[in-house]
Design a protein around this nucleic acid. Structure first.
Lengths: 340, 340
DNA sequence: TTGTACGCGTTATCAT
DNA sequence: ATGATAACGCGTACAA
């Protein structure tokens, strides 16, 4: 029922030329007369000829497509990173194959296999929260370039782009200390993830630097969701000695935290101050507005794809780890200045 | 630097078999002895052989991939629809090529061209807010199946899946009337979009049914963003006679609306009630929580992809328009019961 | 300057 | 039961 696509062969036939001549004319190869080139280009234009990327890929052993492994996209952080990736990829003539694991390790494996089968030229990956084994990535290691971003594989042999989670968490905790908090809780992420560990470390370091003892019952791990933030907050409120501040591993759990505190009539930030991590859109919607560590999401995407391009274009693969700075944004949830 | 992929040829060579025999063995073709099949499968397993989808696509003139044309993905509505699409596509063995236009009509054209060049088997599209001409889709019309969802092309020749925007808007407006509002404003979307028009029509119909005159200055068009919601709200507040309710074309603009009203110390819902459309995650974060018309986003995605599969699997293309129901969700922003 | 022949990986058709 | 060959669309080494 559907029309067929125009090929080089159609053009050659109509013009009584050989396939190679047409092919050459189409690619501005020098060895073809002005006259024939004109004729070929004109006809190609007229017939809406488009070269078949599949055939090209097969022939050149290069697909010009990059596989993207993502947990989910209904998430302002990842969708924004994705935008950054997209822009750079598009400019460089690369095509994106985006796969979503829905935070499932099994699905992630399938997706990776699919991308590999598809002969993508490289893979950009942020692993699922369930991912603790990396065999599926190991299998590809050294065969095509892999760049991890944010949710990385802590393997020195692969390239990664992250934000400075340690320093970000350190800064966030220091900020809470600076406004007078003494008993700071941490709602952490899934414990297998590197991000989670780094943020936890930053938090601990800040406490230590202020000579505060670490209270294990103030550390709740580990999830990223709003619901998890809610549960963890309930748990913290049930403590005999409540915290006076909560540092959440991300904005989503911080939102859950704030909503729960409000329901329980806890004054924010007077009784408990709250800070998140990411600076998502929702941070300015919730009331009180949420203080947070801003991550340069677009830049993270751009850098990741740029690093991929670098690997693609040079013969020798030298893994790199690029680290971006985060930025403290103070909003109402930690604003304890007298005026407020 | 990178290893090469295993092909049928490698297996044939190692086993001293012909390409065809190996190919048959791999696909469980009956005409091959148990013995050779076993040997082939064993070696294929051992070498991690994976068939090359590019070669298959080229040969079968079928890519098993569907192009998805989206405005953006940092948007809970579209990302959720995308999830629905993904699930169905994955189950059916189809692959998704997702393109983002960032709400730019020019980018959308490019993307469509790219997908076409890529020989996708079909296209799933929600157009950008800028899109008013449909030539790029026209060029493909009848060549491969196209299914529009939500942001559709009002052309009877293509298939579409939408929610009942007219009825949803009608219900939302009726709800505002039911709680006693008499001067209902509408912050509309970009005027070229069908969604926008249908929601406007539903709003107008509800007013007419209640014998209320339509005040043109209460209708502000057209955008989808939070910022637009803010501007439009400012405009409405500047009116000599303020509205007592605002029906926003979507949740994002409704959030902008609520935030602005709060800044201006307008009581919600007592002075001005607000209702949105979509039921995004943010609706329960903002304070007061936002009443809205819930859209079955996942179902929308699933249905769209299912319709695509139907078109793909039958010879004759009969366009369909499937319409899903919306659901009124009452929250604080329109809760005027005495108890509250 | 143009054409021929082959290869990219796979499968269908036609032998044997 | 197995093998040779052509074809999908394109590019290129080689020949003319």
């Amino acid at each position: 029922m559907y029309q067929e696509q125009v090929t080089i062969k159609d053009i050659a036939k109509k013009l009584n030329l050989s396939l190679s001549t047409v092919s050459r004319a189409l690619r501005n190869h020098p060895d073809v007369s002005q006259e024939t080139r004109k004729k070929v280009l004109a006809l190609a234009e007229k017939l809406h000829y488009e070269k078949n990327p599949l055939a090209l890929s097969l022939r050149n052993q290069k697909t010009f497509s990059i596989g993207v492994v993502l947990p989910e996209v209904a998430n302002s952080f990842f969708s924004s990173v994705l935008s950054g990736i997209q822009h750079v990829a598009h400019e460089a003539g690369y095509n994106l194959l985006i796969t979503l694991s829905d935070e499932s390790a099994a699905r992630e494996q399938e997706n990776l296999k699919h991308l590999w089968r598809y002969r993508v030229d490289g893979i950009l990956a942020a692993v699922s929260k369930e991912t603790s084994s990396f065999e599926h990535f190991e299998a590809i290691l050294g065969k095509i370039p892999i760049v991890f971003f944010d949710r990385i594989w802590a393997n020195p042999q692969v390239s990664k782009v992250t934000v400075d989670d340690y320093e970000g968490a350190f800064t966030a905790t220091k900020h809470l200390l600076a406004i007078g908090c003494k008993r700071i809780a941490h709602i952490a992420g899934p414990s297998n993830l590197q991000v989670t560990q780094n943020r936890l470390e930053g938090y601990l370091a800040a406490l230590r630097q202020s000579n505060l003892s670490v209270d294990q019952e103030l550390i709740i791990d580990g999830g990223f969701s709003r619901d998890f933030g809610r549960q963890a907050t309930q748990q913290l409120l049930a403590l005999p000695q409540r915290p006076d501040a909560i540092f959440c591993v991300n904005d989503r759990s911080a939102i859950g935290c704030i909503l729960t505190l409000k329901e329980r009539q806890v004054a924010i930030p007077e009784e408990i101050a709250v800070i998140g991590f990411t600076n998502s859109e929702t941070a300015t919607i919730v009331s009180p507005t949420l203080s947070t560590m801003a991550q340069p999401t677009l830049a993270l995407g751009r850098l990741s794809m740029n690093l991929m391009l670098k690997h693609l274009n040079q013969e020798d693969f030298i893994p790199e780890h690029q680290v971006l700075k985060t930025n403290l944004i103070v909003r109402q949830s930690t604003d304890r200045t007298p005026s407020s």
